[in-house]
Design a protein around this nucleic acid. Structure first.
Length: 432
RNA sequence: GCGAUUGUAGCUCAGUUGGUUAGAGCGCCGGUUUGUGGUACCGGAGGUCGCGGGUUCAAACCCCGUCAAUCGCCCCA
C-alpha cells in the first residue's frame, strides 16, 4: 500500500501557535488600540497588485524588485505580484479610490507581506507588518506625529527599553543628489580598500556603503562626507523642525548620520527603531518620508510619510504575554454533564472565561485542566452530595486570598443562585 | 545566490571505537487508586533513524548527493 506523503509547509512560512501566537496577537491588538488614539483610519488592502505598482515605485534596481518579488501571471496574462510592502499599494489606492479628497490622510493597516528571501531569525518569506502612513502632508508635524505613535506603541508593548530610535535626514532631491555624488567620489578614491560587497554597492547603491557591517568599510565611512554639508536651507529647517517636535513630544532619539534607507523613494526624514536583541535583524520598525513616490505612479506631487514594523520581530521582543485567567468546570459524574454545561454557559454570559472539561473521568479532567493552566477548577456534584454541590479549587500560584475570594464571588453572582447560594472553596494560599 | 551547523517516536532529546530486537521524559490510549493541593500507580500503542546512493560481514553512526530546518552574509520590517 503506497503511503501518502504529507505535503510540507512552504519554506519561510510559519504556523504559529501557543505563546508565540499570543505575543503576535498582543502586538496587533496593541497597534490597533494605539493607532485609534492618534486617529489613524483603518484600511484594508489587497494582498496582490499589478507588478508595476511595486516595480515603478520601489525602484527597479532595488533588491526587493530585482530578486525578491513573488510575481506570477494571471489567466489573462497580466503580471501580478504578492505585495512585498504596504506603501506602494496604499499610494495606488490613494490615486484610484478617490482618497485624495481626504488629504491629509492618516491611515493604518496590518497583514502579511511576501518576499522571496532566505529565511533566518526574524525574517520570513511570508511575514507580517504593521503600517501607518500620512499622505498629503508636507509638514514636519506629520513626521513627528508618526514617530510619536511608533514610540508609544513600543512603550505599550513594553519593549521600549531595548529599542532606540535612529534618526537621519536624506535631504530633499537636490540635497540628496549632490551628497550622493560626493559619496561616490569619496569611495571611488579608496575603492581598493572597500569590501567586495561595497565595491558592488558603489555602482548600484552607494548610499548603502554607509551602513555596511564590514570593518574594512568602517574607516572610510567615518571620513565620508556627511549629508549635513549638502542640505539646502529648506531641508535643514525641515529636519530641525522634526527634531524639535520630537523633543517637545518627549520622544527620545539618536542622530545617526549614516542611516540610509533601502528603497529609492525616501526623502528628508529617515528613521529606524533598532535593537541588538534580535541577532542580525536589528530593525524593528522603519520608515521615512517619500515625497516622490506618488508621482512615480502617475499621480500629482504628493508629500507623504510612513513607517512599517515587523510583527514577528516585535513579538519576539515581547516576553511572557500572560495567558488570560480561566475556570474549568468539571462534572463529578456523567449525570452532572448538563449541569456543568449550564454553569459554563452562565459564567461566559457573565464575562468570565470558562471551559468545560469533557474528556475522561473527573480526576483526569482536573489534571488536564491544571496542565492547561486553569486558574481554578469548579467541580459540580449531585444535588445533596455530602461534600456540597459545588467546589472551587484555586490553582493559580501567587494569588492572595482576596483575589480568590473575588473570583469566588464573581462565579456566585454569575450563577445567580441557580446552584445554591454558596459553595466551598480551597486554594494554595488559603489556610483552609 | 553564498557559508556554517543540525535532521532519531506527536514534542524535547539520549544512542559508546560501526556490532543482537534503537531508548528516556513529556504527550497519547487503556486501567487502578484517590473525593482532591503543585511530579499518584500499572500497562499499552507509536520510529521507512529526513530522502537516495555508496563503503562494509555488519551503518542511526563512515563517504557522496539531495531535501529541509536553524543561524549568518546579502538585503530588509
Amino acid at each position: 500500500m503506497a503511503s501518502i506523503k504529507t505535503p510540507q509547509a512552504i519554506r519561510g512560512t510559519q504556523d504559529i501557535f501557543g505563546a508565540e501566537a499570543e505575543a503576535f496577537a498582543f502586538v496587533v491588538e496593541t497597534f490597533e488600540r494605539v493607532r485609534k488614539l492618534y486617529r489613524f483610519r483603518r484600511i484594508e488592502m489587497p494582498v496582490f497588485e499589478k507588478t508595476e505598482v511595486f516595480s515603478r515605485s520601489l525602484g527597479e534596481t532595488t533588491d526587493v524588485v530585482s530578486k525578491e518579488m513573488y510575481s506570477f501571471e494571471d489567466r489573462g496574462g497580466e503580471s501580478l505580484t504578492l505585495r512585498p510592502e504596504f506603501t506602494a499599494g496604499i499610494a495606488r489606492a490613494y490615486l484610484t479610490s478617490g482618497w485624495q479628497q481626504y488629504a491629509p490622510l492618516k491611515v493604518a493597516t496590518h497583514g502579511p507581506l511576501f518576499r522571496y528571501e532566505r529565511p533566518q531569525k526574524g525574517r520570513y518569506r511570508q511575514f507580517h507588518q504593521l503600517d501607518a502612513e500620512i499622505i498629503g502632508a508636507a509638514e514636519p508635524q506629520a513626521d513627528v506625529e508618526l514617530l510619536a505613535m511608533a514610540d508609544q506603541l513600543l512603550k505599550e508593548l513594553g519593549i521600549a527599553e531595548g529599542v532606540t530610535l535612529n534618526l537621519n535626514t536624506l535631504g530633499d532631491a537636490p540635497s540628496r543628489e549632490s551628497w550622493r555624488m560626493a559619496l561616490i567620489e569619496h569611495f571611488r578614491e579608496a575603492r581598493d580598500a572597500l569590501s567586495e560587497d561595497s565595491r558592488e554597492r558603489l555602482e548600484k547603491n552607494p548610499l548603502r556603503i554607509l551602513d555596511s557591517k564590514d570593518p574594512r568599510d568602517q574607516a572610510l565611512v567615518h571620513t565620508a562626507p556627511r549629508i549635513d554639508d549638502f542640505l539646502s536651507g529648506e531641508a535643514e529647517r525641515y529636519f530641525l523642525a522634526v527634531c524639535d517636535g520630537l523633543d517637545a513630544a518627549g520622544v527620545a532619539w539618536h542622530r545617526n548620520a549614516t542611516l540610509v534607507r533601502g528603497l529609492d523613494y525616501y526623502r528628508h526624514t529617515a528613521f529606524e527603531f533598532v535593537t541588538d536583541r534580535l541577532g542580525a535583524q536589528g530593525t524593528v520598525l522603519g520608515g521615512g518620508r517619500y515625497d516622490g513616490l506618488i508621482e512615480t505612479l502617475g499621480g500629482p506631487h504628493t508629500p507623504a510619510v510612513g513607517w512599517a514594523a515587523g510583527v514577528e520581530r516585535l513579538a519576539m521582543l515581547v516576553e511572557g504575554v500572560s495567558a488570560d485567567d480561566f475556570i474549568a468546570v468539571v462534572p463529578d459524574q456523567p449525570e452532572q454533564e448538563c449541569d456543568a454545561g449550564r454553569i459554563v454557559q452562565l459564567l461566559r454570559t457573565a464575562g468570565l472565561t470558562a471551559i468545560l472539561a469533557f474528556r475522561g473521568n473527573a480526576k483526569k479532567r482536573v489534571d488536564a485542566a491544571r496542565r492547561e493552566g486553569a486558574t481554578a477548577v469548579l467541580i459540580v456534584r449531585s444535588d445533596g452530595h455530602s461534600l456540597g454541590r459545588l467546589h472551587m479549587s484555586h490553582y493559580a500560584s501567587g494569588r492572595s486570598n482576596r483575589e480568590q475570594d473575588d473570583l469566588d464571588s464573581k462565579v456566585l453572582s454569575a450563577l445567580d443562585g441557580e446552584f445554591g447560594s454558596k459553595f466551598s472553596s480551597s486554594g494554595w494560599n488559603r489556610p483552609s
